[in-house]
Structure formats: C-alpha cells, structure tokens
Design a protein around this nucleic acid. Structure first.
Lengths: 243, 243
DNA sequence: GCCATTCAGGTACCCTGTACGCAAATGAAA
DNA sequence: TTTCATTTGCGTACAGGGTACCTGAATGGC
C-alpha cells in the first residue's frame, strides 16, 4: 500500500482514535503545528525548520514526519491554525459594510500578530477549512446585496487583495529589518534611506516625490491608514453594483 | 575599508570603466542576471541557485560573488530586468482609463512570461529603477484627474494589488503543479480536485459552492477574465473621486 | 508468549548560501 | 623590464537545510 500519494494535506487527516496494535503516538499534528507557530512568531519563518521544531519538542527531526508528510504541508497547517483566530459571528449582520469591515480588521490583527502569515498565504494557493470559513462569511455578507455570484467573488477578492497588501506594507519594513538583523529605525535610515533620498534628489520621478514628500497619509497611525484604504475599497464596492 | 556595508543593491552599482591595475572582469552583473532569469523561466525559481547559474556560465559558484553581494540582491536585479520589458510611452495619453489598462496588460504579460516574478515581487519591498518608472507612469496617468496625491497613490496601489493577485491566480495552479512535478491537468484532478469535490459535496459552504458551480467567469478565457476584473477596478477608481 | 504493527529517533545523503584563501592576471610605477 | 599593489577566478570548507532509510522499542490482538 503506497501511502505517499501526492494529495492535499486536508485529504490526509491525522488518524486518531485508532485502537489497533502498535506504539501510541507521543505527539500530535496540532502540538507540532502550535510549536511551529510559536517559533515563527518569535524568530521568524526562516527559523522554523524541522530540526528547530523537533528540538523544541525534545525529539528528533525525523519524528515529525510521522505526523506531517512534508514541510510545506506544515505551513498549510500553520496558516489554518492562526486563521482560526479570526472571530466572526455565525451569520452576517445584514449590514455588509460593517461585516466586511469586521473581516478586514480581524484579518489585519491576525496578520500583525503573525508577521509570517500574509507572506506565506499570498505565496501558496491553499484552501484550508478556516480560510473557507472566512471566505464564506465574506461572501455571505454580500449575499442579497450583490446578485451575481461572480461579482460577489470579485468584490471579496478585491477586499482580500487590499488586506494582504496593506498588512504586507505594515509588516514589510520591520520584517526586512529583522531579516537583515538591523532594528527598524536603523534599517530605514541606513539601508533604504540613502537610496530613496538619492531618488528623490535626482528629481527623475516628480510624482513619486510628491507621494513621499506631500503625503498626509504617511503621518497617520498605521491603524488610521488601514481604515482609510479600507474605506476606499468599500466605497469602490458600494459605488457600483446595485447596492 | 569595510566593503560589506549593508545597503541596497541600487546604491552599489557595478564599477565599470575602471582603468586601474588588476585582472579584467570576465563576466558582468547583467550577464549573470540574464542567465538567472533564463533558468528561472525554464526551471523555476527554486532551481535558480548560485551553483546552477555559475555552472551555466561555465564557472564556479563563488565567482558570482564578485558581481553580486548576496543572492537576494540578484533577485532584485532579476525583477528589475524583466520589468524593463514593460513598454510604456514617455507620457500618458490623457485618457487615464486606457493608460492604466495599458500598464495592467503589460504587467500581466510580463508576469505570465516569468511566472516567478509576481511571487517574488510581492514578497519583498523592492524599489528598482524600472519599478519606479512604471509606478511613475501610473501616477502620471491619474495626474490632473485625481487631485490628492494620497488618493493617486491609493488608486495605483489598488490597481497594483489587482494585477498581482490576478496574475497569481492565473499562475498559481500551473506553478504549484510544476513544483509537485505533475502536469497541470493531473494536478487539478488528483491533487486539489478531490478536496474541492469533498468540500462542495459536504455542502458546508453554500456560497463557495455557488462561486464554483454557477460561475460564468470561470468559463471565460484567462485574458477575458483578467479584463473583466480590471474593469471592476477601473470602475471603482472612476466611480468615486472627482473624475 | 508470540507477532504484526506502529512510533521514536539516529544516521546519512545531497543540497544550499557563502566565508576564506590562494593563484593568476593586469596596469602602473620604478 | 622588473616590481608590485590590486583585482579577478575559483577551489575548499563550513554550517545549515529537507528528508529517505533503518533499527529498536513499545503496544494490542491472537
């Protein structure tokens, strides 16, 4: 019996409540995933190696492969685990605008708590149960207001795109700073600062310059900026269609 | 003299037209980048290793480090090189809608020609000269129609987000299929197919089901789908603001 | 008690990026 | 022409990575 069929992790559930012969498992998929999330939160995704996770659990690297087929599958499990943190009511309220706002703010919070989430999520086409739950809620928020299912999916996609790129912008600098080992302030000044200054001073890109120099947005708090952009997206949804 | 100052690749130009003593360089940053792009196009980004590139050039891996400080910097150079393929007039036409459409279609074409581009681009906050050029053109397309610079940047960001996620959706399946070594059709049927079917048959996500089963969009060609979504974004820009 | 089954964990292989060092090449100076 | 500082080419080596495979221990059914 070939057990290494190449199929999604969601089709290969951990076999539980087995009562046949054999040694009892000492760990669990959930426990391994939780440990991986913890390491990724504190030390970054690139520190989340099989050896590191196993070491944290006090075991050997190869033991993990009894629970997870591949490392990439573990990433899918990690994504699913933290998306579980997005708290949504069972049914949308009927006010699509506040429902989608709730999704956006919850998703942003999760993305900021786990800086590896969005980069990982937008890099792989995963479809775990928790992502399906959030997706379904967002679709349901528009149900009744937007009639065409393709439009609904399109709007939810737009919202999703905004959340991802906004969170990435918020995280981007600090993450890159952590990767290069500098603190954010030093990184901003010594690493990218000189280049941006050179570009600005060259005067070759006047509108880019204005977006840097005259921006009022950039003086707002990150949360206020997010809200601002979110409203732009929601206005875009509300303005067209038959809402 | 410490030459390993941690600064952006764009601040560390290849020193050319040197006429001092020392051996003449046998390669060039441009040549190395071109080779890397070629490998990434045909074999994927994960095959684009320093050793592989050097082998293609008929040299040793360490020789490359005379031209490129780090591997990540080479990625930045690769991004810049293929974004150069995006052909735009010197000045926008005055019709912001067709100008932004041009940017979108050109960017999509580049993304499809180089399937590694978008995943790489949305994973790192890079700001090469070519990206600045395209960004400036998109801003200029809205100049005069949108007065507030923050709004201009916001709209351009929305467009950018759409292009990225649309291209990623187009590429996603075939890329993941290539990564797992299956052809796209097999992958769709054997890898993700069973899971989606299970989800659909469970009936747990009725609107997700509708978006799969009743979608008219999914029967369109990829190009037509892209156009459809693009118009949604442009409508969003046009509907609000004072255009 | 026997035995098929299952897990823990070590070893090993091949791959990666890249720090380091030395030999060869080169143009300027002596 | 000889010398020499300088720069490149490239082999070696190291610290890590994912994971295939194997051995020994544990476990429940017969």
């Amino acid at each position: 019996m070939s057990d290494d069929q190449p199929t999604s992790i969601w089709m290969r559930p951990e076999r539980l409540e087995r009562s046949g012969p054999g040694r009892r498992p000492g760990y669990s998929r959930d426990q391994i995933t939780r440990t991986a999330v913890q390491i990724a939160d504190t030390e970054g995704l690139e520190a989340t190696t099989m050896r590191r996770i196993a070491c944290e659990l006090g075991t050997g690297a190869m033991s993990l492969y009894r629970y997870v087929p591949k490392r990439d599958d573990l990433f899918d499990l990690m994504i699913d685990m933290v998306i579980r943190e997005i708290e949504l009511p069972d049914q949308p309220s009927g006010d699509w605008r506040s429902d989608l706002s709730l999704v956006a703010h919850q998703a942003r919070a999760a993305g900021l708590r786990h800086p590896w989430l969005v980069p990982l999520l937008s890099g792989r086409p995963t479809l775990g149960p928790q992502l399906l739950r959030v997706h379904e809620f967002a679709l349901a928020a528009l149900d009744g207001f937007v009639l065409d299912i393709d439009d609904m999916a399109g709007y939810v996609g737009m919202l999703n795109d905004y959340i991802h790129s906004a969170v990435r912008r918020e995280i981007g600098w600090q993450e890159e700073a952590r990767r290069t080992g500098l603190d954010p302030e030093t990184w901003k000044r010594d690493y990218v600062g000189p280049y941006v200054r050179q570009v600005v001073e060259s005067g070759a890109y006047p509108l880019f310059n204005r977006s840097i120099l005259e921006s009022r947005m950039s003086h707002l708090s990150p949360a206020a900026r997010f809200q601002h952009g979110l409203e732009r997206v929601l206005n875009g949804i509300g303005a067209q269609g038959r809402i």
